[in-house]
């Protein structure tokens, strides 16, 4: 990676910020409609403690949702691929469940799990459950048939074939599911907070928006974006480590 590769995103970001500031100056938009980056930076500094508090809550919701969604999704994919009856009975349920917009469930989740973190964790879990399950299941299903022949002639049990061949072979697919999950989990948590909450970046945004503190909304958005990026790149790195053997296309 050359220095330019590192600098390029910074240059792009600086350029966009400059455009933004220029737009504010040129249009003369009042700060309660469109605050400039300088104003937002001021809020980021002034309200650092407040933002950090809400970011920690949203971050915890995202991480817990990611963990639970991955666990449930992974377990579901394994069950589906290991048991034919499970496939016959559960696959339609899984597909139909995706016809329901998960966002529409947010009010119900708030009703059932309350205004605290639980309903947001549930939301994030739900939103990543399907991508993880379907990607991992797909990977498990597409095991190289030659390997299964080989395992059979070697006298392998179904379980050890799953553990030694099908599971590692499905890791790249599982990784793709995880990447999608890392990208959408923050959406789940924030939507959950919008519907009803007492803390979190989504709550802070809604609260500030209602009071025309638009620069605080922007500051919260910036924090959320950074949070999501860190999460995505951390997951991406982890997935790459796990599938190092796979040549990069």
């Amino acid at each position: 990676m050359s220095a330019l590769d590192l600098l390029r995103p910074l240059i792009v970001a600086a350029g966009l910020l400059a455009l933004w500031q220029a737009a504010v100056w040129l249009t003369g938009a009042p700060p309660f409609i469109l605050p400039g980056p300088v104003a937002v930076a001021g809020v980021l500094a002034d309200k650092a403690g407040l933002l950090a508090y809400h970011a920690a809550i949203t971050g915890a919701e995202i991480l817990l949702g990611l963990l639970l969604g991955t666990l449930f999704g992974g377990a579901s994919a394994l069950t589906l691929s290991a048991f034919r009856p499970a496939r016959r009975w559960l696959m339609p349920v899984l597909v139909v469940s995706q016809a329901l917009p998960v966002f529409a469930l947010a009010p119900l989740l708030t009703l059932w799990f309350g205004y605290g973190m639980a309903s947001k964790v549930a939301m994030a879990t739900l939103i990543i459950y399907f991508p993880v399950t379907s990607a991992f299941y797909d990977g498990l299903r597409r095991t190289e048939l030659g390997w299964l022949d080989l395992a059979r002639t070697m006298g392998a049990s179904k379980l050890s074939t799953l553990w030694r061949l099908r599971l590692p072979a499905a890791l790249p697919a599982f990784g793709s599911g995880l990447r999608v999950a890392a990208a959408v989990a923050p959406i789940g948590a924030v939507v959950g907070e919008w519907v009803g909450s007492s803390a979190g970046l989504g709550y802070l945004m809604l609260h500030a928006n209602a009071r025309m503190q638009v620069s605080t909304v922007f500051a919260a958005l910036a924090v959320l974006a950074v949070l999501s990026l860190i999460l995505f790149f951390a997951v991406d790195r982890g997935v790459r480590r796990l599938t190092r053997w796979r040549p990069e296309a």
Partner: peptide, 14 residues
């Protein structure tokens, strides 16, 4: 019986 196929069928991660 041992079986050997046309392709080596090596596990790429191992």
């Amino acid at each position: 019986i041992a079986y050997m196929a046309q392709r080596d069928l090596l596990a790429p991660w191992a």
